[in-house]
Design a protein around this nucleic acid. Structure first.
Lengths: 261, 261
DNA sequence: CTCCTTCAGTCGTCTAGACAAGCAGGGGTG
DNA sequence: CACCCCTGCTTGTCTAGACGACTGAAGGAG
């Protein structure tokens, strides 16, 4: 095996920069120089302890730092690996264009096919609920709402968890309450019901996941989520659906086209 | 002072959940129940050690976990505090509408005024450079580009770092090379130069900041960044500007309006 | 009164060691 | 051959303690 010193220089004992930060710097540098490529295994804690002549907790501290930056990911019993960039799902702002609905495919399937990946939908759940204050405000305070929850996976990896809310007076006794609402998804059904869609408003934030979200999406530490709330409006200006989605940020690239006028 | 046991229950010694995770659970729970409100100081490490009967490293581990979730933030010599939600800057998709430019204000100032906050621009830097591969591809491989870098602050807090790239054949010998390009910003100048703007394409990702970005934006751990690359096109379909911006995710809420057609 | 020092409290860094738990491969057993 | 266990390597969890550095307030010196 190659010497560690081929990849990692010595520390600077005079500087006042904490030792574990210096070790993290060396590792970060080695990664960015390509000494360790995507998916490659870093030296084990024991090897780093040996190489730098520090205690194990110091080495672990430096690795925790790199994990929090999303650069590496530790796997119990195996080692620490440079986190590979997963295939990204490109979300374009025209993904809800009517022409896609009319092809009879849901937005997610269209996107996944374009990327050549295997799309799956999971943990589908359809219920009636009292709306939360937030959803209620967006939908014009309906008494009850239909909730459609589901998880999206790409090549077996969960990447998005979404919940749609529709006023029950719209969704009741329609295919929308079915687990599979049919070709084109619920937006196609809404238009068939006379709710011709006019536009969508999207609100977007990024933050760290809650522990629950991290579990559902199998997120490594150092991976944020994108939290997107979309409200669909029909041509009468009525909000007919709110979709609350939490996405694994490392799996997404969102694109929007804005008019300059 | 109130007893810690008023806020934090005991651990479950039988469960196989790690002790530091249980402590983090208790603290997280206490925060979400409002026992500790935004900006409040958590019990000190010493108090938690005492209360739970564990070693200090275990307590520190649990606090590190909460920090990585963005829930709390430790301040050297002072304590650990529930991270307050900063005022957010709402970025609307019409922020580049011509009517805003024609009012003679830059997009950032308009937004900040609307939020009632004090906007500042900082670390302005204007240079000529050879474009990176990425910028070059977007701008149609110009020989050299004009780079305008700057940092935006709101109420004294840095929230965004941005770099604009323009083909030098467009920007040379125009007010665009000036530190202050004049009312309406560089987009107004571009239109005066005959490059009537048609649309913008935005590409958006979320990720953890690099150490450098964390320094520039004074980011606490557990705060991701939104990385947005915007390309401006004129009515001839030519890309006339690329703007690469890195935003503190906790300071932003982005909104977009998408047509349904 | 102002300024400085001191000090207690707090988190930051680091050590040395121990045992647990997950993983993979070798080798023995059937 | 197929299966299982054992062993060695890996990271995960936890302990007990030491010193450093920063903060803010109390108290003393001028």
């Amino acid at each position: 095996m190659a010497q560690l010193s081929d990849h990692l220089g010595p520390l600077d004992p005079t500087g006042d920069r904490a030792v574990y930060r210096q070790i993290a710097d060396r590792l970060r540098e080695a990664i960015s120089r390509g000494r360790f490529t995507e998916g490659a295994k870093l030296p084990s804690e024991a090897e780093l302890v040996e190489h730098f002549g520090v205690s194990r907790m110091t080495v672990r501290n430096s690795i925790a730092l790199l994990q929090s930056e999303g650069l590496v990911s530790a796997e119990h019993g195996k080692g620490v690996f440079v986190r590979p960039r997963p295939p990204v799902r490109r979300l374009a702002s025209d993904r809800f264009a009517r022409r896609h609905r009319e092809q009879g495919k849901s937005a997610f399937i269209v996107e996944a096919d374009a990327a050549g990946s295997a799309p799956t939908v999971d943990q589908l759940e359809v219920r009636e609920e009292r709306p939360s204050a937030e959803v209620s405000a967006r939908l014009g305070a309906p008494h009850k709402v239909l909730v459609r929850k589901r998880r999206y996976l790409l090549d077996g990896r969960p990447i998005e968890y979404a919940a749609s809310y529709l006023p029950l007076d719209i969704a009741r006794d329609t295919p929308i309450v079915q687990p599979n609402p049919g070709p084109g998804g619920i937006y196609a059904r809404l238009e068939e019901l006379g709710h011709t869609l006019d536009h969508f408003d999207e609100e977007l934030r990024a933050r760290m996941p809650t522990p629950q979200e991290a579990r559902h999406l199998h997120l490594a530490s150092g991976v944020p989520v994108i939290h997107l709330v979309r409200t669909a409006f029909d041509t009468h200006g009525r909000a007919v659906e709110v979709c609350d989605t939490v996405m694994a940020a490392d799996a997404y690239l969102l694109t929007y086209r804005l008019p300059a006028t």
